[in-house]
């Protein structure tokens, strides 16, 4: 790692101020950023740790919306969202491993927008609102491609608002080495229709599979997606799977997610 200064503000306001320094970088749980720093692939002048900001932590319910502080740990979501949004809790409880879940945060995951991360699929499928220190961003506008989001430099995700669906499930097929999603599919059924978000599969990051959404909105059953091909997206091809394999998995996992959602 290159050398940098380290600050750990107590409030969002102080964090925002600290992030105005040139080449300052926010540090959530660090589970992706720290390995990146170790490889000397980033050279921040100052790391602004968000772990000391209590106002960004916690899970609470606001009517039909689950509100999760941006600094909330995966482990906390796994525990505290269970009663309200079990599919989301299950997703959080299956990210990485227990140690990762005890440091990694929802805000950090969404800000990083790794194309194979789990949380982006939940946020997109839930039609979540990403709340930052300065504005609210609809999930449909937030994810802008691999490792790319609508966040401006220095902008911090303070909370995430996820409308609670009638039924939902997330099914992940793990890349054998990293255990990130080779493909992950989050299906959420709302009164207004079904949303299907796919992670792990596309060079453009998480995306909505609209054909499946239409089919499932008409008929919420695993059979409804049979034969559908997720062909539109620019699918990843790598050592762990061809684009065709990923396309196939999207269909299989979507059907399984629908079955699991019940």
């Amino acid at each position: 790692m290159y050398a940098f200064d380290f600050v750990r503000p107590k409030t969002v306001a102080d964090a925002v101020k600290a992030l105005q320094a040139e080449d300052a970088q926010a540090l959530g749980g660090g589970q992706t950023l720290i390995p990146t720093l170790k490889q000397r692939l980033a050279q921040p002048s100052v790391l602004v740790s968000l772990t000391g900001i209590d106002e960004m932590k916690g899970v609470c319910r606001d009517g039909d919306v689950l509100v999760i502080g941006g600094g909330t740990l995966h482990a906390t979501v796994a525990r505290e969202a269970r009663a309200h949004y079990p599919a989301l809790a299950a997703l959080a409880g299956n990210i990485g491993d227990p140690a990762v879940r005890n440091r990694g945060t929802i805000g950090g995951s969404l800000a990083n927008n790794d194309p194979s991360a789990c949380y982006p699929s939940a946020a997109l499928a839930s039609g979540a609102t990403i709340v930052t220190n300065s504005r609210k961003i609809a999930a449909d506008d937030y994810f802008q491609g691999m490792f790319t989001t609508a966040l401006e430099p220095g902008e911090i995700i303070t909370s995430v608002r996820l409308p609670i669906p009638q039924k939902a499930a997330y099914v992940k097929f793990e890349q054998p080495a990293s255990r990130f999603a080779l493909v992950g599919v989050f299906v959420a059924k709302y009164a207004g229709g079904v949303r299907v978000a796919v992670t792990g599969a596309s060079n453009n990051g998480v995306f909505r599979w609209t054909e499946a959404e239409a089919a499932l909105s008409a008929n919420f059953s695993a059979g409804a997606v049979k034969g559908l091909k997720a062909t539109a997206a620019d699918l990843i091809a790598d050592l762990h799977g061809t684009a065709a394999y990923r396309a196939h998995l999207i269909g299989v996992l979507t059907a399984r997610a629908v079955a699991a959602a019940g």
Binding site: F6, L27, G30, S49, T51, A75, A99
Partner: peptide, 17 residues
Amino acid sequence: VNGAQVKSCTVFALDVD
């Protein structure tokens, strides 16, 4: 750290002050 398992190679010392 505070009873929760973490990977100490992926936590800054100052972050667990």
